[in-house]
Nucleic acid binder design. Structure first.
Length: 407
DNA sequence: TCTATTTGACCCTA
DNA sequence: TAGGGTCAAATAGA
């Protein structure tokens, strides 16, 4: 066992492996039952159960491997180490590894901050939102996500018909906001824009969007012309849990977009979600989001069965041992709202986000609930870490979005 | 004059 | 080493 691995990590690792073992055992039972029954036509639900078990087994091992990888970091850089009561802060900027005379606020520095010991951009949380533009409309509307962005680059991408635009938060220099996004037009359908968000908004404007949107007074979110918002979240981090220093800002981002999405919904948008996997560690969202979205539960949101691209992944909500460090931060600002609603099924858990992914792929709701219950009890009830606060009013944001010059 | 965008060059990651 | 991501000088627009 890694010498840097503390009791906490070790317990979680053991817990994850144990869970994988237990799931494998259950799978074996299922398989034996299917064989002995000799009824080649096993029910679809049992098939789904087996599928689910397999997925969870694989996930458990992936998690365990991730833990091993991350726990090999120096103790001081350990992103998994819970820090109860520790103030949310940005990690300190590491010294430049190259000595390159680059600007101090370069994205590389930010990446270094986020990666905590790793320079890999890949470990930044990022999520993608696809927005379909009404052919008759301009580009400003559909790409306006309520935030203020400044374009800092554009590049032709290999194999892509259209160049990719690079944007960063307008308030980067003033407030050190690290949020960036990339906007690229779809090759297949030029009316679709793929917007990839990276990092999170730490600027003081974020909640401005929230406040105005949630109160229905936001006039800066002209998204009503969008015909489709297609969201697919991806977390590139090798670790399912964001470092503590990522929690707060991304929470803001998520919340911002949640309200933003709420605004979209109010505007009659059709929202589709897909590819919302890899969002482990969202379990804390469940409870934390209840209050936040209590006021939105009456929205007319497309149900999962009405949209086959929505899916529910109960696995994501219960498969972690260190749930305390989970953050909604890793949920796409846009996707968050989308998924909450799409999977809410009329319940009060519209904040399900990724937890509701794969919903229509996992069999009946009751069966999923059983599995969730079982695994949850085995891994511990998700809790919200001390850093986890939702809906606080400490941020005021006033975002505008300028896409002029894009394409 | 200030702010935002464009764009070629540079740097980093895979 | 190729490609993606970012910088920063030049340029454009308000």
């Amino acid at each position: 066992m890694d010498q840097n691995m503390g009791d906490w990590e070790q317990k979680n690792l053991v817990n994850e492996l144990t869970r994988g073992k237990e799931l494998a055992r259950q799978l074996q039972i299922h398989l034996n039952a299917a064989n002995t029954a000799a009824s080649a036509s096993s029910s679809s639900s049992s098939h789904e159960t087996r599928e689910y078990l397999v997925q969870n087994i694989l996930r458990s091992y992936e998690k365990a491997l991730s833990m091993l990888n991350w726990t090999s970091l120096p103790a001081g850089d350990h992103p998994l180490q819970p820090s109860p009561g520790a103030p949310v802060r940005m990690s300190e900027s590491p010294p430049s590894l190259t000595g390159s005379p680059r600007s101090e606020d370069s994205d590389r520095d930010q990446d270094n901050k986020d990666n905590i010991g790793s320079r890999k951009r890949k470990s930044l949380p990022r999520w993608t939102q696809q927005v379909r533009v009404d052919p008759g409309m301009g580009l400003e509307g559909p790409l306006d996500d309520g935030f203020s962005w400044r374009k800092y680059g554009q590049k032709d991408i290999l194999g892509a018909k259209y160049p990719r635009g690079y944007y960063r938060c307008t308030h980067r220099n003033v407030q050190g906001c690290l949020a960036t996004k990339q906007v690229q037009r779809s090759d297949e359908d030029s009316t679709i824009f793929e917007i990839t968000y990276r990092g999170r908004h730490t600027c003081t404007q974020a909640s401005h969007v929230l406040g105005t949107a949630s109160s229905g007074q936001n006039q800066e979110l002209p998204t009503s012309n969008n015909s489709i918002i297609n969201i697919s979240n991806t977390i590139e981090s090798h670790h399912p849990h964001p470092p503590n220093n990522l929690l707060q800002p991304l929470e803001q981002t998520q919340q911002q977009t949640q309200d933003h999405m709420l605004s979209d919904f109010k505007s009659g948008l059709k929202v589709i979600t897909e590819g919302l996997d890899n969002l482990d560690g969202q379990s804390s969202l469940i409870s934390s989001s209840f209050n936040l979205f209590a006021s939105t539960s009456n929205l007319n949101i497309p149900k999962a069965e009405e949209n086959p691209r929505q899916y529910f992944e109960p696995n994501s909500m219960i498969n972690d041992g260190f749930v305390g460090g989970f953050s909604p931060s890793f949920v796409s600002p846009a996707a968050s709202g989308t998924n909450y609603f799409s999977a809410s099924q009329g319940g009060s858990h519209e904040f399900g986000v990724d937890h509701h992914q794969n919903f229509d792929q996992q069999g009946s709701e009751s069966e999923i609930a059983e599995i969730i219950s079982a695994v949850t009890s085995a891994t511990g009830t998700p809790t919200i870490g001390p850093d986890f606060q939702f809906g606080h009013g400490e941020f005021d944001s006033n975002f505008t979005f300028d896409n002029s010059g894009l394409f």
